[in-house]
C-alpha cells in the first residue's frame, strides 16, 4: 500500500469577521470588506481581483438561491503564508446534485452556469457542502501569493 505522505499543514484563523448578506447593498459592503482584508495581508492585485470576483459569484448564488445568508471573512495562516478564507452559509433549499452544479454550463436559473466551476478555478481551496432542505456552505481560500 502506498503511504499518503502529503502533509496537510495546519490552518490557523487569525481574525473572524461575519458579514450578513440580505440585500444588494450588503453585497457592495461585503466586497469592500474582502478587499480591505486582502490588502491588509498584502495580497497582489491579480489575486485580490480573483478573490473578490469569486466572492461576488458566491454571494450572488447565496442571494439568488439561498435567500441571503452570512459570509465569514477570516485571515488564515498556514506555516508562513497568509490567506483569506471566506465561508458562505445560507439556509436555502440546498443543492440536490453538487456534481452537476460544479459542471461548466449547468444552471437551474437562467445564468451561464459558470459561477461555481469558475469560482473554483479562481481560488486555491474550494469546498462545498449542501443538504437539501437545510442549506449550503461554500468555503474558499485564496493565499496571498498562491
Amino acid at each position: 500500500m502506498i503511504l499518503m505522505s502529503k502533509k496537510l499543514p495546519m490552518i490557523l484563523s487569525l481574525s473572524k469577521d461575519p458579514v450578513q448578506v440580505r440585500q444588494e447593498q450588503d453585497v457592495v459592503f461585503l466586497k469592500n470588506r474582502v478587499k480591505e482584508v486582502a490588502v491588509r495581508i498584502k495580497m497582489g492585485l491579480v489575486n485580490q481581483t480573483r478573490l473578490i470576483t469569486a466572492a461576488s459569484e458566491l454571494v450572488r448564488n447565496m442571494m439568488r438561491y439561498g435567500n441571503g445568508g452570512v459570509c465569514l471573512i477570516e485571515v488564515v495562516s498556514s506555516g508562513r503564508i497568509n490567506g483569506v478564507r471566506l465561508t458562505f452559509t445560507d439556509k436555502g433549499p440546498g443543492i440536490p446534485d453538487i456534481a452537476a452544479a460544479m459542471r461548466d454550463g449547468f444552471s437551474t436559473g437562467k445564468s451561464l452556469g459558470l459561477g461555481l466551476p469558475g469560482t473554483k478555478r479562481l481560488v486555491n481551496e474550494f469546498d462545498i457542502k449542501s443538504k437539501v432542505g437545510e442549506g449550503t456552505t461554500v468555503t474558499i481560500i485564496k493565499w496571498a501569493n498562491g
Binding site: V46, T49, R50, E57, L112, G118, R121, L122
Partner: peptide, 14 residues
C-alpha cells in the same frame, strides 16, 4: 479593461 480583470474573466471561463 484592467489586466487583472482580463485574467479573471478568462479563468472564470468567460
Amino acid at each position: 479593461m484592467q489586466p487583472a480583470v482580463a485574467i479573471t474573466l478568462i479563468e472564470l471561463g468567460l
